[in-house]
């Protein structure tokens, strides 16, 4: 039990459960099937985006171009199907390939030049977004095959949408990657301390490129899922991903300097953010408040993490005196 209390996700889980009970007590509409359906849709999309950012946070960097990759893949995916009348599977594969290539570019340039990932991904953000606008000229693609539309709309059982399947699989795979494989552990080691990880023989090049490639792939999947959900490919897909992509891992206790992320806590962070956004809508609060709220939640999470670190430090100090 005391072990459970120490986990990042435990407190978050408690907040989610208590919060949901409280909200549904005041507004029973919160647990209506339709509301749950909408909630699950938003959770499943943001889950992929958050994982895409989380893996870069794990190696102590940041990826500003997550949204731009998602947008570029989204319009390529729909564009290939509409303009070149490609079938779904090859269009999807090419979409994934574009995500992979974008991630590879980010990772390769970052690790080979040693320039901070922030500035590289800021530049690629504009490059990918510029390509997106150059190709589409800011016009959406509307012709989506019915199968894709069906996947975005259909429900498996009750309020559970089909769209939730892929994000759940991704979350499980990410958990396995970060907790059970040597690649994941190497990433965390690299994020924690670059010098010592190099000294014990971890290849920086490999780790950074792998992390960025995975991030690019996840962003690509996120972009295509949004296409399924919206039933069209607009060039502004991904524009609003930046804030939530950082919010969930940070609320989940990730340390931005790298070396510490928690997949389950990140997933809970996504759920928490979605529930709060949804609650604000149900209580008819101005939608602009959602943004302010998200900002305050990040700051709050940052303060709580800091406080816990501080307590941890004090505890270890006491032990060292004994």
């Amino acid at each position: 039990m005391s072990n459970l209390l120490k986990k990042d996700w435990f407190g978050l889980g408690l907040v989610i459960i208590l919060g949901s009970i409280l909200i549904s007590f005041f507004k029973p509409a919160f647990i209506s099937p339709f509301n749950l359906y909408v909630l699950m849709l938003s959770v499943s999309l943001m889950l992929v985006v958050a994982m895409s950012q989380m893996i870069i946070i794990a190696i102590g960097q940041m990826n500003l171009s997550v949204g731009a990759i998602g947008g570029l893949v989204a319009i390529s995916f729909t564009g290939l199907m509409e303009v070149y009348s490609m079938s779904i599977l090859p269009a999807m594969l090419i979409g994934l390939l574009i995500g992979l290539a974008c991630g590879f570019i980010n990772g390769y340039i970052t690790v080979k030049t040693g320039i901070s990932a922030f500035i590289i991904t800021l530049a690629t953000l504009y490059i990918f977004k510029g390509m997106n606008l150059g190709i589409t000229e800011a016009q959406p693609f509307y012709e989506i095959p019915d199968a894709v539309k069906f996947f975005g709309n259909a429900k498996i059982l009750g309020p559970i949408p089909y769209l939730v399947i892929i994000p759940i699989i991704i979350t499980i795979l990410m958990w396995i990657l970060m907790n059970r494989t040597s690649l994941g552990r190497y990433m965390l080691a690299y994020g924690n301390n670059v010098q010592s990880s190099e000294l014990i023989g971890i290849s920086s090049t490999k780790i950074v490129i792998y992390a960025h490639v995975i991030s690019g792939l996840l962003a690509a999947i996120g972009g295509m899922l949004v296409v399924c959900r919206l039933q069209l490919g607009t060039p502004n897909i991904g524009d609003s991903w930046l804030l939530p992509s950082f919010a969930a891992p940070v609320i989940g206790g990730a340390i931005l300097a790298g070396g510490k992320v928690d997949v389950i806590a990140t997933a809970f962070g996504v759920i928490l953010v979605s529930i709060i956004s949804q609650a604000l809508v149900i209580f008819k609060i101005d939608p602009f408040f959602v943004q302010i709220f998200l900002g305050f939640m990040i700051l709050l999470a940052v303060f709580i993490n800091r406080y816990r670190e501080y307590r941890e430090e004090r505890r270890t100090k006491v032990f060292s005196y004994e």
């Binding site: 602009f288 943004q291 302010i292 900002g295 990040i298 700051l299 993490n305 800091r306």
Partner: peptide, 27 residues
């Protein structure tokens, strides 16, 4: 103030304040 007091990189702090300032302004 928030950056110095929390010791968190100013990136995340200003990411948060960005949406707070802009949100309040629009509101």
């Amino acid at each position: 103030f928030v950056t110095v007091r929390t010791g968190v990189h100013s990136f995340i702090v200003t990411l948060a304040t960005m949406s707070i300032y802009f949100g309040f302004m629009t509101l």
